[in-house]
Simulated assay, not measured.
Amino acid sequence: MSQRLAALIALLAFVVVVMGALVTGGKLGLDDAGPTRISFQIATGSTEGVYFPVGQALAGLISHPLGVGRCDTATVCGPAGVILSARTSQGAADNLRAVNSGAVDSGFADGDVIAAAVAGQGVFRRPARHLRVIAALFPEEAHLVVAANSNIWSVEDLRGKRVLLGPPGSGGMVRSRAILTAFRVRVREIISDDSAGQMMREGKIDAYFTVAGVPLDSVKILLADHVARLAPIDGEGRDRLIQMVPQLEHATIPAGAYPHSGPVETVATRAYWVTRDGEGDSLVYGMTRALFNPANHGMLAQSHPSARAIGLDSAAVNPPAPLHPGAARFYREKGMLSGDSG
Rank of each mutant, 00 (worst) to 15 (best):
L61Q: 07
V133Y: 07
A309P: 03
A178N: 08
S176C: 09
L223A: 10
E48C: 10
I134T: 04
P263R: 07
I242A: 04
L96S: 08
S106G: 03
R87I: 11
G111Q: 00
S39F: 00
H260C: 10
D225L: 13
G49I: 10
I83K: 02
L291G: 04
N293F: 12
A98K: 02
A207M: 10
A257P: 02
A178E: 09
A13I: 01
C77H: 07
I205L: 09
D72A: 15
L164S: 14
T36Y: 01
A74E: 12
R332L: 13
F330Q: 09
L312M: 15
S338P: 05
R308E: 09
R270N: 01
P127L: 14
G278Y: 06
D194L: 11
G342Q: 04
A251E: 01
V211I: 14
G169C: 12
A136G: 14
I253H: 01
R240A: 14
L11W: 04
L337M: 13
I38R: 05
M173V: 07
D94E: 09
Q243A: 15
V274P: 01
A309S: 12
L222C: 09
T36F: 04
R126T: 14
I9C: 11
V174I: 10
G78F: 02
Q198S: 11
M299F: 06
I179E: 04
G120I: 00
D32Q: 12
K27D: 06
I242Y: 03
L312Y: 08
